[in-house]
C-alpha cells in the first residue's frame, strides 16, 4: 500500500511538472501580456517597455519558466504580476472560499446521492427508480447558470428569503454562512447528485445480478444487508471514482456558479488571471487543481482497495 502511494505521488509530481510546462507554453501563446493588461488599451510603448523590464518580462521565455520553477521548488510561488500581491496570499484566501463551498456541497450531495442511488437499485424499474431516474436526467440536463439564475429569481428576487449573492469575505456567523451559501450549494449539489446517484445505481444493480447475490438471497439474507454489505463493497471501486471526479469538479470547475453568485473562489481567480496574463497566479491555480485531481483519484483507488479484498491481495502480490 505504501509502495502504491509512493509510486503514485511520484507520478503525480511528474504530472504537475508536465502540466506546469504546458500551462506556461499556453500562456505564452496567448496574445498580449500582463504589461498590456495592467496599463490598458491606451498605454504608450515606453511605459509598456518599462513595466516589462520591471516585471522581468523582457527575459527570454525559457529563462522565465526556469526561474519560476526554481522558486516553486523552494515553495516560493512568486508575486502576482498584475497586483504585486504575493501569490500565496491571493490563492490562500480564494482556496479557503472554494474549500468551504466544495466541502458543504459534497457534504450535502454525497449522502443524498447514496440514498437515491441505493434506493433506486433496490427495486430496479420500480416507481422510485423511474421517478429518480427521470428527475436526475432532467436536473443534469439543466446548465448551472440556468439553475442558479432560476434559484436567484425565485428565492432572492421574488421571495426575498435568501441573498442574491454569496459574496462574502468572512462569515460572521454560521447562520449567515448557511443563508449565503444555500443557493450555490443547492445548484452544485443538484448537478453532481444526479451524476453520482445514477452511477451508484448502475454499479449496484450490476453487482446485484451476480450469482453470489442470488446465493445470499436463497440463504435468506435480508435485502438491506445484501445491498449494504455484500453489493456495496464490491461496487465501491467505480463509485469511489465517480465521487472523486465530482469532488475534483467542485474544486476546479465551478467558475459559472462562482460567477452567478459572485463568490470569490479559486476558479474565478484563474479566469481573472488568464485575462490579465498573470502567469504566476495561473500556474498556482492550475497546479492546485491538478494536485486535487491526483490526490482524489489516489484516495479513490485506496478506497477501492480497502473495500475489496481481491484488489488488496493483488496489490500485495505485486
Amino acid at each position: 500500500m505504501l509502495n502504491l502511494i509512493g509510486r503514485r505521488a511520484l507520478q503525480g509530481l511528474l504530472t504537475l511538472l508536465v502540466v506546469s510546462f504546458l500551462v506556461f507554453a499556453g500562456t505564452e501563446l496567448l496574445p498580449g501580456d500582463v504589461a498590456q493588461a495592467v496599463l490598458g488599451q491606451h498605454a504608450t510603448p515606453e511605459s509598456l517597455q518599462e513595466l516589462r523590464v520591471q516585471l522581468g518580462l523582457d527575459r527570454p521565455a525559457p529563462l522565465r519558466y526556469l526561474s519560476w520553477l526554481a522558486g516553486v521548488i523552494h515553495l516560493d510561488f512568486g508575486v502576482s504580476l498584475a497586483s504585486q500581491v504575493p501569490v500565496r496570499t491571493l490563492v490562500a484566501e480564494r482556496l479557503g472560499h472554494t474549500l468551504i463551498l466544495a466541502g458543504l456541497s459534497a457534504a450535502v450531495a454525497v449522502p443524498i446521492a447514496f440514498v437515491i442511488g441505493l434506493g433506486a437499485a433496490t427495486r430496479p424499474a420500480g416507481v422510485f427508480d423511474r421517478v429518480s431516474s427521470i428527475g436526475a436526467l432532467c436536473v443534469s440536463a439543466l446548465p448551472e447558470f440556468f439553475l442558479g439564475t432560476l434559484l436567484v429569481l425565485i428565492f432572492a428576487v421574488n421571495l426575498r428569503w435568501l441573498p442574491a449573492i454569496a459574496y462574502v469575505t468572512e462569515f460572521r456567523s454560521f447562520g449567515q454562512m448557511v443563508t449565503s451559501l444555500a443557493m450555490p450549494v443547492a445548484t452544485l449539489a443538484a448537478v453532481i447528485v444526479s451524476q453520482m446517484a445514477r452511477m451508484i445505481r448502475a454499479t449496484v444493480v450490476n453487482v446485484l445480478s451476480l450469482p453470489y447475490v442470488e446465493m445470499a438471497v436463497l440463504k435468506g439474507v435480508s435485502y438491506r444487508r445484501i445491498i449494504l454489505v455484500h453489493a456495496l463493497r464490491n461496487a465501491v471501486g467505480p463509485i469511489a471514482n465517480v465521487v472523486a471526479l465530482n469532488l475534483a469538479y467542485l474544486v476546479s470547475g465551478i467558475v459559472i456558479v462562482e460567477t452567478v453568485f459572485v463568490y470569490p473562489g479559486l476558479a474565478r481567480l484563474l479566469v481573472d488571471a488568464v485575462s490579465s496574463r498573470d502567469f504566476p497566479v495561473i500556474q498556482a491555480c492550475v497546479l492546485i487543481f491538478c494536485a486535487v485531481y491526483i490526490a482524489l483519484m489516489l484516495l479513490a483507488d485506496i478506497a477501492a482497495i480497502i473495500g475489496n479484498p481481491r484488489l488488496r491481495h493483488q496489490e500485495m502480490k505485486k
Binding site: 439564475t149 436567484v152 426575498r160 442574491a164 449573492i165 460567477t259 459572485v262
Partner: peptide
C-alpha cells in the same frame, strides 16, 4: 465597493436589495 462582472447577477443583486 466590489465587482459583479455578470450583468444578470448584478441586476438581481440590486433588485433583491443586496446592493
Amino acid at each position: 465597493y466590489f465587482g459583479i462582472a455578470d450583468p444578470v447577477a448584478r441586476l438581481n443583486a440590486l433588485i433583491a436589495g443586496d446592493i
